Each structure stands twice: as C-alpha cells, then as structure tokens.
Amino acid sequence: MAKTPFLPLIGITMGDPAGVGPEVIARALADPDVYRGCRPFVLGDAEVMREALPPGMAVRTIEDPAEAGGLAGRVDLLPLSHLPPSSRVPGRPTVEGGRAMVGYILEAVELARKGRIDAMVTAPINKALMNAAGFHYEGHTPLIAERTGARDYVMMLAGERLRVTLVTIHCALKEVPGLLDASAIRRTISVTHQALRRDFGIERPRIAVAALNPHAGEEGLFGDEEARVIGPAVQAARAEGMEVAGPLPADTLFFHAAAGRYDVVVCMYHDQGLIPLKLLHFADGVNVTLGLPIVRTSVDHGTAYDIAGKGLADPSSLMAALRMAASMVRHRAAAGEAAAIDRDP
C-alpha cells in the first residue's frame, strides 16, 4: 500500500484582527490546492475568523494542533482570544487587538519550538500597535529570534524569479553606511548560503552581493564602502568556498538575478532589495526568516486597513508563504534536520 504523503502541520497566526489577515486566511483556506501541500490551522480568534469567512465556509475550534484535519472549506482554529465586538471591527485597530495579535505569535513559536507543529506562517501585524501593546520590537523577526534563541538571523524576501536578503533592515537611509561593516556583511552571506542549502535544497548557491554606491563606487569616486567593507566580506566568503560575486552595481545586478544568473542577491539596505522584489512579486512575495531553528514564513504585505473587510484582499502572498514553508520543512527533513513525523488527523 502506498505511503500517505507527508503533509507538514502549519500554524497560521491571524495577525492584527482589524487588518486583512483574517480575510486572506479565509480566502487561502478556501482553495483545495493548499491542502495538497500541508495541513494548516489558524491561531487566533474564532469570532473574528467567522466574520471574515465567505458563505459556505465554517470555523471548527480545536484544542490541540494535532486535531487539524486539513479539509478545504473548513478553518481549524486554536482559539487564543475572545475579543469584544469593539476590537473586531475591520480597519479599526485597538490595543486589545494588538495584545491578542502578539499572543498568537508567541504561542505559534512555542508550538514550533517544541516540535508540535512543523512550521509557522504569519499574517500581517502593525508594528506600532505591537509596541503600544507593550511588546517593544521592530516586528515579527526580532521577537521570534529572541524566543528561539537565534543570534544570527537574516530577512529574506522571495518569489519565483528573485530572492533578496538584507544586511540592514529597518533604519533611516542616512544610517546605512555607518551600520555596514565587513563582519555584518560576511555574516549575512554565510546565513544566506547555509539557508539556501538547508531550506531550499540548493547544493551550491550562487550569491551576488550588491554594491552600496552608484557604479559600485566607481573606484572610490562615489564612495569607499565597496573597497573598505563590502569587498573584504566577499573575499572572506570566497575563501571559505562559497560561490559569491560582488560587490556588483545594483542598477544592473537585479536584471541578471531575475534572469537566473544568481540564486539570491545580498542587499545593503531595505529598499535596495524590496523595490525590485516587489516590482516582480508584489502579490506573491514571501518574507522568510533565515537562521532560525524553526521554519517561519510570512506574507509580504501589511495590514491594509483601508481595504480590510471589503473583500478586496489578495491571498496570493499567504498561499505562497504556505507553499514555501511546506517546502522548507521537507528540505530540512530530507537533510535529517527535522523529523517528518506522520501526524494522522
């Protein structure tokens, strides 16, 4: 008798209850294709989820992730909050909703850390609301890294045609040159290289490193960061056997990366990577945290309060995040780094 395919058990955090998270989850879990690759369930609020469902779908509350049945059209949900009607209004965020939003994340991290789920996928949150609720982090990534004990972690944004990782993330552009050093760049290259092998199954990753300045500094005419910090980091990575090119002028680099010459581009700052990524993958980009002991992917969009509850939100990014999380789990399992446990519904 043929063995039943391994379907990773994936917890989806609902995100800000007032944002588009519940809606994109509902629309994604209405698609039978999602269940061919994983067994998803939601960590959130049952009433919020019910109010986001289209006709014909239902919420089934569960007490344990193992109860998730993986049936299209039915949302299995682990209830972690019971928000009052005033905190369930689409487009109107509240501090109470913000506390619940963080609670979903913390529970998913614990479940993943203990091996009770195979991966977590996060719906969008409001970073200011997170801080207003008493959790002083810049977003999901540093919170999850702290809770899992990860020290060297990297943000990746990925689509079918392009992947980018970031040396610096959320900071003012004027601060970037002072934050760059050879050690930070070298660490980003290394974490990226290891993750492409472990999580994406690329045996010998081809990594391109973007320059900071126009024309890669034009031999020092437009800046010296290429010669002073980026170049030495690239050379150090090469000395360790990694296939790394750079620093390369960013104005031409992304064309070649999107055409398939490189598996990833290591970028010096946030918008250097996200502008080309979102040009190609505005709807279906995925945010991945590399270097964690658990698998975590996320949608690559915000809470979109202006369209929340209006039936306009696109579930493509969430669906791509679920597919990528399931693929990462399988690659880790194939490498013997995570147990592909058959969990019968």
Results as ranks from 00 to 15, higher is better:
Met1Asn: 05
Met1Lys: 08
Leu7Tyr: 08
Ile10Asn: 02
Ile10Phe: 07
Gly11His: 03
Pro17Gln: 13
Gly21Tyr: 02
Pro22Cys: 11
Pro22Tyr: 14
Ile25His: 03
Ala28Asn: 05
Leu29Val: 00
Asp33Leu: 13
Cys38Asp: 04
Arg39Tyr: 01
Pro40Trp: 00
Phe41Asn: 05
Leu43Asp: 04
Thr61Met: 09
Glu63Cys: 10
Pro65Glu: 02
Leu78Cys: 06
Pro79Glu: 15
Ser86Arg: 13
Arg88Glu: 06
Val89Thr: 15
Arg92Phe: 05
Thr94Ile: 06
Thr94Asp: 03
Val95Arg: 15
Gly98Glu: 05
Ala100Val: 13
Leu106Arg: 15
Lys114His: 08
Ile117Gln: 07
Val121Ile: 04
Pro124Leu: 09
Asn131Ala: 10
Tyr137Gly: 13
Glu138Met: 14
Pro142Gln: 12
Leu143Ala: 12
Gly149Cys: 07
Asp152Arg: 15
Asp152Tyr: 12
Val154Lys: 02
Met156Ser: 02
Ala158Val: 07
Arg163Asn: 05
Leu166Pro: 01
Ile169Arg: 13
His170Phe: 09
Val176Arg: 08
Asp181Trp: 09
Ser183Glu: 15
Ile185Glu: 11
Arg186His: 14
Ile189Gln: 11
His193Gly: 07
Arg198Thr: 14
Glu203Pro: 02
Pro205Ala: 09
Ile207Gly: 07
Ala208Trp: 13
Ala208Ile: 11
Ala210Glu: 00
Asn213Arg: 05
Asn213Trp: 06
His215Gly: 02
His215Asn: 08
Gly217Arg: 03
Asp224Thr: 13
Ala227Glu: 15
Ile230Trp: 09
Arg238Asp: 00
Arg238Tyr: 10
Glu240Val: 12
Ala245Thr: 15
Pro247Gln: 11
Pro247Met: 12
Thr252Val: 15
Leu253Glu: 04
Phe254Ala: 08
Tyr262Pro: 09
Val265Lys: 07
His270Val: 04
Gly285Leu: 08
Val288Asn: 03
Val288Arg: 03
Leu290Pro: 02
Ile307Met: 09
Asp314Met: 03
Leu318Ile: 00
Met319Val: 14
Ala325Phe: 06
Ala326Val: 00
Ser327Val: 03
His331Asn: 10
Gly336Tyr: 08
Ile341Pro: 00
Ile341Trp: 01
Asp344Asn: 01
